[in-house]
Nucleic acid binder design. Structure first.
Lengths: 187, 187
DNA sequence: AGCTTTTAGCTAACGTAGTTAGCCAACCTG
DNA sequence: CAGGTTGGCTAACTACGTTAGCTAAAAGCT
């Protein structure tokens, strides 16, 4: 039996890619094993099981999202930063629906859980956007939650194909960015 | 073998209640069968299977949500209507996380699918809120999607326990309602 | 190099969940 | 009361996650 040369990171990366392709709900250990060229039980040498796999995919997704949003914001401020962050976030979710879905409902086990660290990095990226607006200290948390709800809600609804009727979806998203920008500037 | 007197509606209602209790992911046919006092295969006399059960739970959830939001809005306009609708929606999701989760990613099969009808009723309730604001015809769809993203995003993030840090969550939601109200009035 | 240790792959087997087939008793209808 | 319909049942099959235990490839040591 020739060795394939797997390691946990490779298994998680393949799992994330597969989740994006077939949907998180259809990501099975058997399918993943086939994808990486190994029999199902061999996966357990690298990840603890499906639960552990999902956690690691979620941590990867949050880390990548943080990189994407953080990178997009670099060098911008105010409305430009808001637009860049929102677009980068939505683009990430649309391109990687499976791995993003893995993050939903996943609770960090502690403050040094990779999941918590990556999630914090993503939040920090959005926090940087708010620094371009004159938001009172006591409003920052609320504004952050608002931005997060907007972006998360829109992206997940679009991925779920929940926007059925007429108007153009990209146009709606730009409208939404403008709406949030006006609201934040008017504080 | 005494007959239990089940029918599809009773099975779906029990399934929805059970989903709220144990989470949609943990709703199994066996658990539901036990709950309604029957062996697993007997459920298939009333629903087509798990997929069908989830669709029916989703339709029930959307219908109930439409009732809740529609009822809450009655007699109010403008900011009061917006607040009533948003609060009713979030309260519904928090009280019925399992059945609401069933609606996510569920696509109606056609225009007379109960799912589509219930979903449309829920949208109509939010549409009624917008009539209390002076929104241009061409902006209505965008504004509706914004409201939906906000409410859906906030509620699902809260249910997933994704708001970890300090600030009070109810306060954030009221802040968010005020934010949306100001934005809509300023159009 | 040769010997030992570790380890990444394997097969076999088990438990659980969804589903189907087919039986039978309880209800409804005449 | 006879006959059909139907809602319950048991038995059995499939698919998936998981564990146990084996073996050979790689890595390390003398």
């Amino acid at each position: 039996m020739p060795r394939v040369g797997l390691d946990p990171a490779a298994v998680v990366a393949a799992g994330a890619a597969l989740a994006d392709e077939v949907g998180l709900a259809n990501l099975t250990m058997g399918l993943l094993a086939e994808r990486v060229g190994v029999r199902t039980p061999s996966l357990y040498k690298h990840v603890g099981g499906q639960e552990d796999l999902n956690r690691r995919i979620a941590a990867l997704a949050l880390s990548e999202a943080a990189d994407a949003v953080g990178g997009a914001v670099q060098g911008y401020a105010g409305r430009d930063a808001l637009a860049a962050a929102a677009r980068a976030f939505r683009a990430f979710v649309l391109e990687h629906p499976g791995r993003y879905a893995a993050t939903i409902g996943m609770e960090p086990s502690g403050p040094d859980d990779p999941l918590a660290i990556a999630g914090q990095r993503l939040l920090d990226a959005f926090m940087a956007v708010l620094r371009g607006y004159e938001v009172r200290e006591s409003d920052v948390d609320h504004a952050l939650r608002m931005l997060r709800s907007l972006c998360h809600g829109f992206a997940t609804l679009q991925v779920a194909n929940a926007f059925q009727w007429s108007a153009d979806i990209d146009e709606s998203f730009e409208w939404l960015i403008a709406f949030a920008d006006r609201g934040l500037r008017a504080m």
